[in-house]
Design a binder for these strands. Sequence first.
DNA 1: AAAGCCATTGTAAACGTTTGTGTAAAGTGA
DNA 2: TCACTTTACACAAACGTTTACAATGGCTTT
Lengths: 332, 332
Amino acid sequence: MAATIKDIAKLAGVSTATVSRVLANKSAFFSEATATKVHAAATELGYQKNTAAAELVTRHSNVIAAVVNSTKTNFASQIIEGIQAEAHQHDLNVIILYAGDADPVQQRRALMTVIERPVMGILLLSVDLAPENLTLLQSSQVPYCFLSISFDGERLPYITSDDWQVGYQATQALIKQGHRRIGLAGVDSDFHTGRQRVLGYTQALKDAGITPEDEWVQLGNYSYDAGQTAMQAYGAQTELTAIVGASDMAAIGVMNQARDLGLLVPVDLSIVAIDGTELCSLVQPQLTSVSQNFYEMGIAGVQQLRSTETLPQKITPIKLVNRQSVRMLSPE
Amino acid sequence: MAATIKDIAKLAGVSTATVSRVLANKSAFFSEATATKVHAAATELGYQKNTAAAELVTRHSNVIAAVVNSTKTNFASQIIEGIQAEAHQHDLNVIILYAGDADPVQQRRALMTVIERPVMGILLLSVDLAPENLTLLQSSQVPYCFLSISFDGERLPYITSDDWQVGYQATQALIKQGHRRIGLAGVDSDFHTGRQRVLGYTQALKDAGITPEDEWVQLGNYSYDAGQTAMQAYGAQTELTAIVGASDMAAIGVMNQARDLGLLVPVDLSIVAIDGTELCSLVQPQLTSVSQNFYEMGIAGVQQLRSTETLPQKITPIKLVNRQSVRMLSPE
DNA sequence: AAAGCCATTGTAAACGTTTGTGTAAAGTGA
DNA sequence: TCACTTTACACAAACGTTTACAATGGCTTT
């Protein structure tokens, strides 16, 4: 059996209270002599603290739970790095839970495991909570904040990029290079994030005096497949000269499908991706992107959890990163 | 304040023991009537179980911790999916911890957070534990198993592919297509895994009557950069006609650097990647790979944790997946 | 009607910590 | 030397559960 402070107390010939205080380093509560005795006993017994027990009495935990939607896109790791960096600064630990891909059952499972034990706060990375799970989360009294996702009516705390701007700037980047027939591929209009991107996209076109056609935006779930499917729908004979991929994955799907259709990127077709993860520089040609600052989202997320104020919504900056997938279109 | 079973007991007019029993659904220990009363009270109070407290007394937990090395390769998510699938079958929950990239401090932090609270077992995904952290892990009395990594002398439980075979088969695949001057790029010979791959590679060459040159294997840490650096070392005028990438990332690094050097894959240079994650089919040309069965590693990992037997070491199968990065070399 | 059994519920101890309160010994100042 | 403060420690309660054991009452059996 694992050693407890009781065992240490017996071995060192002191009370458990003293052991606890020495181990917690509550200085000015014990003498040097006993401290050394206690430490010696602790190491001799191979003592490991039972934090769960401690948390039970202090009613306070130092772990942050990050619940991530295991979608096939990979920005989560960047957010998590941000979370960890900021958390560790404040002596917080972070655990990560996979919540499946928009699967209410898995979501509930993940939520339950964190709600049922003491956590200091919950960060939800890009997860669309089913309504019943949102209720569950809210009733749990644990502070939480959504990351990389936004909501419309509900007053929920979230931190994300300005999705309207994301759509606008991606489109505008293409327009500036002379493109006028521009698609948007793989975006999910069922949720606020996607709708905003579509809106930004549309406005950018309108601001340039372009009337978008309905077929220009192909819906999807941001995945590689969504990008592929979208490009198939556009077809080899498409009138489009450029496409905004709703995510890096979608953009890659578009690009690869385009190649299969005999279209060369960027010669025949320009592409701008949304997200700007490392994937963009892995593929050939490297994808120009509207990049989100995921790392900062993570940092802001734990700050939000730590702060008492419930200023609930925050925007992290985006920026256009030029790589190789867009070409300047000479006026026809 | 969150409601406890005490509150429920008071509201329902029963003892906490009874509440505990109906909530745990210990049937044949309570009547229908009280059950409904208790459930009503529980929902009215928005009761959330404090699992930490329960685990304290039962001395038993149902969470598995997966500690992952946040290296820049991405097979971890596949292993995790395997872990989750198998875990959920047995009503186990899984939490994930990032242990940094071979950083002893972060490793220790991750290890501590799981050791200090009740977990049923620990799975370590591809993490090279610093010696002091290994000691820590072993002294914790918690069952553990390494995944996707192997060890030499020490008797540690691990589940992984046969790395010697991985190296052998990747090389052999190239030899079968007529290649004889074959490189190995980005492999880390500081650890057993990498050494085995080199050994397999070397043996495959020898079996084909080829004497490998020292410069053919370029060491590295499996990363994209390692692949790039290796390819730079080979140079545009390289005698090699084919290269085994030590990982998907390394292979992509090799491929992109080759392109920058003016070498076309697979026309001028053939590539076989090791790992076979989705990345292989994302890039162009798609990478032929020796694919590991990461999903099954995850499954086997939780099985190992659940089983009492300490059969410590297990091998998961690999297979060659032909894609587009290898070309048949006509005999000169 | 006594004895025994079963179903249902309550009592209380236990898990491993933290911490408020109490107290003996030691130190301080006159 | 005495009153007082400080230091160093112990005692015991508390956190929210589970569960062994005891207790109650009704029912069956003879």
